[in-house]
Structure formats: C-alpha cells, structure tokens
Nucleic acid binder design. Structure first.
Length: 877
RNA sequence: GGGCGCUUAGCUCAGUUGGUUUAGAGCGUCUGGUUUACACCCAGAAGGUCGGGGGUUCGACUCCCUCAGCGCCCA
C-alpha cells in the first residue's frame, strides 16, 4: 500500500494509544529496576483540559517517556483533587438552577449531589489527557476523596493536633451579609465609591484636649478599642501613655504607638477597631487590644451599637454621624473616594468579619524544607530563580489557616462536647471521639448525640500536600512495599503560582512524615498566555479548545507547538502557528520516511564514497546532538532539547544526509547505505519519541515487522558512543563550500540543473575526502586544485581557501572587486579589534593564556584570509 | 505597601562562573526555485549601537549603582 503523501495524525493516534494501553506499557509494578516516579499535579474535578494542563502534562509525558526508554521503571500516577471551593460553588450553582437552595438541604444530601457531580465530570479531564498521549499508569488513578486518601488526611490532622501543631484561632474573613456566607478573595469585586471622610474628636481623659481622627466608617466607633499614633509624630508626643474616651459610648481606650500609622493620611491619627478591619486586627494582636464585634450576621448593629441596635450599618452610619454632629464631636466631613469590596454574587458590600478557624503552626515544619532546597539542595528547583521566592516565603512563613466554611471536603475530625465552642476532642472517628470525650469530661454517660462534629472542612491543599505519599498509601501504611519503592518521587512539574500553596507544603509534609524529600526535581513551567500576553481565562474566552487543537494539528503537533515556545519558567505566548509548525515537523519526518521507503536496492552496487562519508558524518553528528540533548534534559531545558532534536532531524538528517545519499533519478541504492540510513533514522525516532510519541511509533512500526516487545514506546534511548569531533568540523567546512556554490548560482541565475566547474586554492589544507560530496551537492562536473587565481571566474572564500567558478558569460569585474573590497573592509575592522586587544599590555599580561592564544589565532586567520583577498584583488585589477 | 523577576533582530526567546572570529535560534519578511519524499517544501538574503545613563575591569549582553517601562506573587 502506498504511503499517504501527507502524514495523517487522526488515523494514527487513537490506534497507537489503544495499542500501548492494551499492552500495558504504561503500567508499573514494583520490580528490580530503578523507579522513576512522577505524580501528576491533580487537576480539579471541575476542570476541563486547558492550555496550562496541556503544557504541564506534555512536559511530564516527555520526562516519563524518556525515563521509560532509559530503562527505568517509569510510573506516572494520575489523579484529580476535589477542589472544595470550586466544586462546591459549581454544585451550589447547579442546585440553584434547579431551584434548590443549599441552605434548605442537609449536609448529607448536599454531599450526595457533590458526589454525583464528581462522578459525572471528574474523570473528563483525565480522558482528555489520553488524547494528548499522556502515558500515565491508568490503573493507579487517585482522587483526594478516595477512602484511603481521605483517611490519610484525617490521620494527619489528628497526628498534627496531638503533636500540638494545630490550634484554633480567629481570622478576618470576607463576609457577605446578604448571603450570610464567607467569600474567597476571588469572589470579590472592588468598586470605587464616593463616600465621606469624617473627622471626629475624641476627648483625652483627664484633660480638656481632644484628639481628632479621620474615618470613613463612623458606625464602627462602637467597636473602637484604641487610638494609634505614630511614635515619631511630634504633634502627639505629649499624649503617649494616656487614654481617650470614645464619643457617645464613653469607653476609655488606650493611645498606642505604632509605625503602621500613615503620617500623611487624615490627621495622622488612627482609631483601631480590631473586629472590623484586617489591619486593625493585626494592630490589635500586636498590642493585645480588646476585640469588640458590633455586628450581627446581617451586618445590623448588635447590643454594642447601643440605641442603634438592630439598624443596618449604612443607616446607622448616617444617623450616628448626625448625633456626633449634634453633640459637637464631628469636626468636618470631606468627600472621599475609596475602593469597596462587593460580593460577586449578591452585590452586597463585604464586611470584614472575625471568625473561628483552625490553624497549623508552620515554623517547625518549615525548617527542614528550607534546608532541603536552599542548603543541601536535596531538592532542586528549575529554574533556579524561584529559590529566592521560595526563600522569602519560607523564612517569613505564617501559620496556615486550614479550615474552610464549606461542606465538600475532608470534614475536620473535631467533636464539640455539648453546646460549648471551646470544649472539644480530636479523633479519627466517632467512636474514638466519644471515648476521648468521656475521658475528658469524666462523664461516662456521655453519648454520641451530645457530641457535635465541626462543620468546617479542611483546605483542599491540606489533602494535596500529602499527595506524593498518599497516592501510595504512605500515610496509612508507611511500611508498604509500593511506598518504599516509588517514594521519593523523581520530578514534579507544576506552575510557579502554586509554589507556596502546594510545592512548599508537600516538601514540609514529606519531611514531617518520612524524613525524606517527596521529590527530587521541581520543574516550574510558565503560564500560558495568549498572543497579546493576556492570561488565558474562561472569562476572556481566549483559551483555545484543547481537543480542537489536537483535532487540527495532531497531538504531536500540539505537543511540539507548546514545547517549542516554552523556555523554562518563562511565560509562553501561545500561538496556533506553533502547533502548525509542530504539525509540519511531523509531516517532514513522515516524508523523510517515504523517501527512504521508496528506494529500491541493487545488491550489486557498492557504497559510493559520498554516501559513506555522509553516513559517517551523521553518525558523529547524531552523537554530538545526543550529548547536547541529554545535557539539556539534565537541566530541564526541554524546549532546547526539542529544538536541538528538531534541527538535527530537519537540517542535518533531511537537508544534508538524505540529499547526499539520495540516488540519482531512476537509479537504485546500495544495500549498505540503505541499511545504515534506516538504522540512523531509527535513532532519530528514539530521540524524538518523548516529544512526538505517535508519529514516531507509526513510522517505527512501518520500518519493520516488530513483535510487541519491540514497540518504540518501550524501546531504548540511543546509546552514547564516542565520536570524532573533527569529523563534524570538516563537514561544517564542506557545508560552507557548498553554500558558496549555491550563492554564486543564485547571484548569477545559474540553474541547479546546469553543472559547473569548481577550482580551489587550498590554503587551509582541507582534506579531499569530502570532494565527492561537494561535487554531488553542488552539481560540480570537475573539481580542480589550483595554486593561482582563475581568471574570468567568480570567486568566493571559506576561511583562507579560495574558490573559483569559471563562467562563459562576461564577469562583471567591478562587482567582483566591490565584493572583495567589502570583505576586506570587514576583515580589517575585525583585525583592528583583535589587534587592539593584543596591543594592550594589560590584556596580554592579565588575561588567561588560552584567551590570548585564541586572539592570536583570530589574528593569524584574519591575516591569512586578507592575503588571499589582496591577491585576488590584484589579479582582477 | 512588601517581595521576586523581566527589558537582546519585526515577533517569541537563548546567551550556562565576564573572553569561542566586532551577538545566536525558531518563526515571520524578502528573493529565487516545483517532472525525480515533503509548498505542512527547497535554496539564499536582509534584519540588533543587547531599555537609557553611570561605574568596576585589560575586557561587560554578562557584575555593581541609577533612571525608565513591563510583569508576577502576597496564604
């Protein structure tokens, strides 16, 4: 059957993916070989495949496929996470669309809906990864809410609590008073609003004096517990240590000093309301201030609001401002523009509100993680620049708020006893909780009905930070065989945006539970942006449909397109043209194969010298590039590794080698050349397989009948051999000679079909071994060595060698002279810069010998070439 | 506000302890080419005072300072 002139990815990809699956090539079991493990950064169950995933997973697949070829027991564990915030939001929205309000159903009912949602959509993204060619071990798919992963999280919580690392505390949250719920930062829209800045007098205790503060929210005065001044503010020096009296309320509050105060804003004097402002909360914590919460759930005032109790915060603001004015406390009001956070869902103005939360102490956990990355480099970050970011965050680490006011997730295993908020036990399950509660209270008649489990769930990251361990059940059963074999894992590939949320925390968890690193190398990819540099997002609608891309360009094309532009750690501007380039490359390889496949062997032919020279050269060239590629991989420079392979195959293999060995039209090829070029082609396929698994397997299987174990996917990475660098250098010189011929042909409009003669003055003493190549590639009839210039010929130079092409037509002497003069001008400039260096005594004395020697060589080379040019010039004149 | 980073050819980026022919690649552009694998192709060319200024050095795209512009992260 004739091969299609164009490579058709669609017809090929599903076939081979299914074949690989059927053969179980992606599955890994514990064996004697060294393990190479990657755990997938679990995409969340609400997700569909987007460009970020495509890039991320392509890189992982490249790494794992290469490891497989290198003979490792490669294991790539796939999975998803439950994404409590995102998923719960989706489920709430879905229920709402069906007319069901979350608050009207029970927790259990809600969770049933969430599970339905997960079962319906959760696996979609993994199926999409298969289209991309991801060679995950699909027998190992994990989900953060699977039973063993769930218990891992619970066990870890109990363990950390028992170690005294988990405590309860307060934190300011974004409260939507209309929806009566907490919002995440992402759910808030900031709007500029016109308001007033109120200047209000606070009397100083035991004095006639007043202190004026400026505030945008006079109603929060009811919650004031201090006045703060800048320690260096000369205006207020005399007030240090005194107390002020809250207007109308009459409460005595301290005057504290803190550099936080902005001397320029308002009066340079700040009222502190720890219950209702994030910054005030921090000040309050620092100065141990009282916390007075003045609002109800719906942001109406509570009993602290005195006679305004029950009024809405905005009504109260107006009314109270009036009262302050009437009573002479209000000095003035100014117009003031400020940014107000509003709820994305209800539009209500967000109220900062203190709420009960669970925290994990981070200080002790951080230390081994800091050492591992920054001190011993047991874990390496690529690119290295992220170590700075990591360092800064880790050294200023704050305690982690691990509770979320949601239902979907790992419910915090704490049980409150009776009505109290502060009496509770932490346990792995209800039975254990009851036993602990009985022990704690001494009340043996206590029953489960009197215990109430914490409503909040844990932050999703509190489950994913265990991921490299929990996927192998390493928390529940640290001694299990798989865990001991696959862990620590090898590479982690993820985005820098979750370096703290996830990567750093995994490192901490790893050391806490195994005293080992969870992975060896962290490769941080860039963000995928659109052509205009905008982040790809659903709301902008600028993210291309991943599956459509694969449909249009083939999985191989998309993989290449993504990788080509992805310099390590830098954002990449995604452009479909890159996928087109990838698709074009697949087609190029396909056609190289078609060419070779089409050659007929004549057993009687011996190998022509040019073919032998070409094959020899390519074997060396291949080794040279293999070395480069391995080096790039060792530095996680994946795009460089791909580009090096791309140029090797396209330029060196297709444009040079195939043109060299290609038999003349109608002629056959000798057996040895064909056999050798196929073998070299197979090496190319091995090199390319991690990047382009489909097209390489397709061609591999076309080349010969293979049994199952011989499939490319489980074959071997090319073997490194020593090679002669000199060979590639000589060949490079030959290329320049041929380019020179092509240039002359182009300049003088000599068709390639017309053969010409070439004369050379071999000043460089170049080998004649490649002369046959020059003749074939340049369509040269006769190649003649000469000692003198050839008159009436066009000339060009490579190094100090001079080449002449005699032409029947008139040679334009003027043009030739001008060309040579140009070259002389350049060389003289160059020579000048070299001589300047060499003429500098301090350079000669201080620079390393090698560098000086190099400059000397540059000089002698330039002089030699100048000499030939001047001789030519003379012969023309 | 704090932290980190970026600025090199029209575009996207390399440039790996400061010295490898007075800066490299891919794409794009321009010129020429199609009976003999591929127009998703072949051959060739043009294109940059390395963001501005200052400094260190025998020598700076590379190190330091400064100015300007841009980006990311802040639990």
């Amino acid at each position: 059957m004739a091969l299609a002139t164009k490579y058709n990815a669609k017809e090929v990809e599903d076939k081979w993916y299914q074949f690989w699956l059927d053969q179980g090539f992606f599955n890994s079991e514990v064996n004697d070989k060294p393990a190479y493990t990657i755990v997938i950064p679990p995409p969340n169950v609400t997700g569909i495949l987007h460009m970020g995933h495509m890039l991320n997973n392509t890189i992982q697949d490249v790494l794992i496929r290469r490891a497989r070829l290198q003979g490792f027991n490669a294991c790539w564990v796939p999975g998803t996470d439950h994404a409590s915030i995102a998923t719960e939001a989706k489920v709430v929205a879905k229920l709402k669309a069906e007319g069901i309000d979350k608050s009207s159903i029970s927790r259990d009912e809600f969770l049933k809906h969430a599970w339905d949602w997960t079962h319906n959509y959760g696996g979609k993204i993994l199926d999409q990864l298969k289209k991309l060619g991801a060679s995950c071990d699909w027998n190992r798919v994990k989900f953060t809410m699977d039973e063993d992963l769930y218990t891992s999280v619970i066990h870890s919580f109990v363990d950390l609590y028992e170690k005294g690392k988990i405590y309860r505390g307060h934190r300011m949250v974004n409260w939507d008073p209309e929806a009566k719920t907490t919002l995440s930062d992402e759910e808030i829209i900031y709007q500029e609003k016109n308001g007033n800045l109120y200047y209000i007098n606070y009397p100083i205790e035991g004095s006639e004096e007043c202190l004026t503060i400026a505030t945008t929210r006079p109603e929060t005065i009811f919650g004031d517990t201090a006045i703060c001044i800048h320690p260096e503010d000369e205006r207020y020096q005399h007030l240090k240590g005194k107390h002020a009296v809250v207007p109308v309320v009459g409460r005595k509050i301290p005057i504290i000093q803190d550099e936080y105060v902005d001397l320029e804003f308002g009066t340079g004097c700040l009222k502190v309301t720890p219950a209702h402002d994030e910054n005030d909360k921090n000040l309050g914590d620092k100065h141990q201030l009282e916390v007075i919460d003045i609002f109800n759930e719906d942001a109406s005032l509570n009993a602290f609001g005195l006679h305004y109790q029950g009024q809405d915060r905005f009504e109260a603001r107006k009314a109270f401002a009036n009262e302050l004015k009437e009573k002479g406390f209000l000095v003035k009001t100014e117009n003031h523009l400020n940014k107000v956070g509003t709820s994305e869902r209800t539009g209500a103005v967000i109220e900062p509100r203190l709420s009960d939360q669970w925290f994990l102490t981070m200080q002790d956990l951080a230390q081994p993680a800091i050492d591992a990355v920054l001190k011993d480099e047991t874990i390496k970050l690529f690119p290295k620049k992220f170590e700075n970011t990591y360092k800064h965050w880790m050294e200023n680490i704050r305690d982690w708020n691990i509770s979320r006011q949601l239902w979907w997730g790992h419910r915090i295993p704490a049980w409150y006893i009776g009505e109290g908020k502060n009496e509770f036990v932490v346990a792995k399950n209800e039975e254990e909780a009851l036993a602990k509660a009985i022990e704690k209270t001494g009340n043996s008649s206590l029953s489960l009905a009197e215990l109430h489990q914490e409503e909040d769930v844990l932050d999703t990251w509190f489950s994913s930070w265990l991921w490299p361990m929990s996927v192998f059940n390493g928390i529940n059963e640290p001694e299990n065989e798989e865990f001991k074999y696959y862990y620590p894992t090898k590479d982690l590939v993820t985005g820098p945006d979750i370096l703290f949320f996830w990567v750093a925390r995994m490192i901490m968890a790893g050391y806490e539970y195994t005293e080992q690193k969870p992975f060896e190398n962290v490769y941080l990819t860039g963000l995928v942006r659109d052509k205009q540099g905008r982040k790809m997002s659903k709301s902008l609608g600028n993210s291309p449909d991943a599956l459509q891309l694969i449909e249009d360009f083939g999985a191989d094309g998309v993989r290449v397109g993504l990788l080509l532009s992805n310099a390590a750690g830098n954002d990449l501007l995604f452009d479909e043209a890159l996928c087109q380039q990838g698709k074009g490359f697949a087609n190029k390889i396909w056609n190289a194969f078609r060419l070779i496949k089409g050659w007929e062997v004549d057993e009687n032919l011996s190998t022509p010298s040019y073919a032998k020279a070409g094959l020899d050269w390519y074997a060396s060239r291949f080794q040279q590039v293999l070395e480069e590629v391995d080096d790039h991989f060792s530095k996680y420079r994946i795009s460089d590794a791909l580009m090096a392979s791309y140029k090797l195959v396209w330029d060196d293999f297709c444009s040079w080698l195939l043109e060299i060995i290609k038999p003349n039209y109608g002629e056959k090829i000798d057996a040895i050349t064909l056999q050798q070029v196929i073998s070299l082609f197979e090496d190319n396929l091995k090199l390319l397989h991690p990047f382009m698994p489909f097209v390489t397997e397709e061609i591999w299987q076309h080349i010969a009948e293979r049994n199952q174990e011989e499939a490319l996917v489980v074959n071997q990475w090319p073997v490194k051999k020593s090679y002669q660098k000199a060979k590639t250098k000589t060949f490079d010189f030959m290329k320049e000679v041929v380019s020179g011929i092509r240039n002359v042909r182009k300049e003088k409009n000599i068709s390639f079909k017309d053969s010409i003669d070439l004369f050379v003055i071999n000043n460089e003493n170049q080998t004649k071994e490649l002369d046959d190549l020059i003749k074939k590639l340049g369509n040269i009839t006769k190649l003649t060595y000469s000692d003198t210039s050839v008159e009436g010929a066009l000339s060009y130079r490579v190094g100090a060698n001079e080449y002449f092409i005699p032409l029947k037509g008139a040679i334009n002497i003027e043009e030739e002279i001008e060309k040579i003069n140009e070259e002389i001008k350049y060389l003289k400039g160059f020579l000048n810069s070299v001589e300047k260096k060499l003429g500098n005594e301090r350079f000669v004395n201080n620079a390393p010998e090698q560098v000086v020697a190099l400059e000397k060589k540059k000089k002698s080379d330039a002089l030699a070439k100048l000499k030939t040019l001047e001789i030519s010039l003379k012969s023309l004149a």
